[in-house]
Design a protein around this nucleic acid. Structure first.
Lengths: 200, 200
DNA sequence: CATTACTAAGTGACCGGTCTACTTTTAAGA
DNA sequence: TCTTAAAAGTAGACCGGTCACTTAGTAATG
């Protein structure tokens, strides 16, 4: 069954093009052409463009969660350092696409949340999974006394998720990593820092 | 010369449709129809769709800056309270469109930054103007001792801008004001709070 | 009457999706 | 093991509709 290979190729190419141009602006023909797959095959694997888009989201979310798991469950690295690595990876991703793509889920969330309830729900689900990773990390960091213990980890995670996505968006428009580095710096020095050991 | 009225109407309707569906997904015919302007007229007022989009951005930026000015230069309100009002207005805007539109500039920044250098530069300019408003407010707050004085106002402004845009994006996808309120709460209680007077 | 302001009616290109035809793979029956 | 037919996958022409944009004109103006 070589079905998987062709289907996966379409999804992989789709993820690239959609991340760069958005869902609506990415034509099926463009995906087919870049994947070197003929037109007729598309509707053998996907019932519609929406179906395809959801498959792209699922595949991306799965692959990305594997990366997150590798970062956030590394026992040799302290929780706070894991968070640092998460940001480092994000910055590297942004650099490697020359500030053109940003975050696929964030992009689609902005583009499709109001357009399609199906997409909105799926993307929200992905965001929640990411936040759960953050919550786990923050709780562990709190238990080890690495960060301030007075704030709710869920609130912190929501804050970090939103702030980081916003920094990515801003980085795309300003074509610089500055907003991401600025967010990171303020986050660690002010939000996460325990009150018992101030910076000054 | 009734040119202005028709042109303004097109821009106003365009801003609505683009905020909700994005630039690429907003057809010229749809704008014409909703504005009740005859089909052939569009290219009398604008040389291209891009020209139209830039006009929409300029008009929106100008109108929005007037709102910002009203908030951030009110002498009867303390700088920190002005910031609170800014967030309150943002939350109200988000509610009044049922989480469907979010921020026009943020949306277009995400959609067009990689697609068009002209748009990217213009949108970046708008963002910078907003950050300038924030910087002024933060400097004034710092001088009055309302917020922590150790952080650079420019860094704080960049942090707030990115975080707030991210919170708006997240609010669209989760269809709730929670991310915005969460961002605001953490921001005020941790980032802006002077170290000399901790919460506890 | 010349010039500008405006507009109806297309233009070709491209969109998502459908169609029929063809090739390859799989698996069952003897 | 060989036959064979369904099923899986490949292939591209084709469809109606919509896109941004153009053309070629009429209506208004001074």
């Amino acid at each position: 069954m070589k079905t998987r290979a062709t289907r996966d190729k379409l999804i992989q190419v789709g993820a690239e093009l959609i991340a760069e141009h958005g869902f609506n602006a990415t034509g099926i023909n463009a995906v087919l052409k870049r994947a070197e797959v003929p037109k007729g095959s598309f509707y053998h694997y996907f019932t519609s463009k929406e179906d395809f888009g959801l498959a792209v989201i699922d595949a991306f979310a799965e692959a990305y969660d594997a990366r997150l798991a590798a970062i956030f469950t590394d026992p040799d690295v302290s929780p706070l350092r894991r968070l640092r690595r998460y940001f480092a990876v994000g910055k590297q991703d942004m650099l490697s696409c020359d500030h053109a793509r940003g975050c696929l889920i964030g992009n689609l969330g902005q583009e499709l949340s109001a357009q399609s309830e199906v997409f909105r729900a799926r993307l929200d689900q992905v965001f929640r999974a990411w936040e759960r990773r953050l919550v786990d990390c923050l709780e562990e960091a709190r238990d080890k006394g690495e960060i301030d213990a007075t704030l709710d980890p869920h609130a912190q995670a929501s804050f970090i998720m939103a702030g980081w996505e916003g920094a990515i968006l801003r980085a795309k428009t300003v074509k610089s990593l500055d907003p991401m580095e600025c967010f990171e710096a303020v986050l660690f020095s002010r939000v996460l820092l325990p009150r018992s050991s101030p910076a000054a």
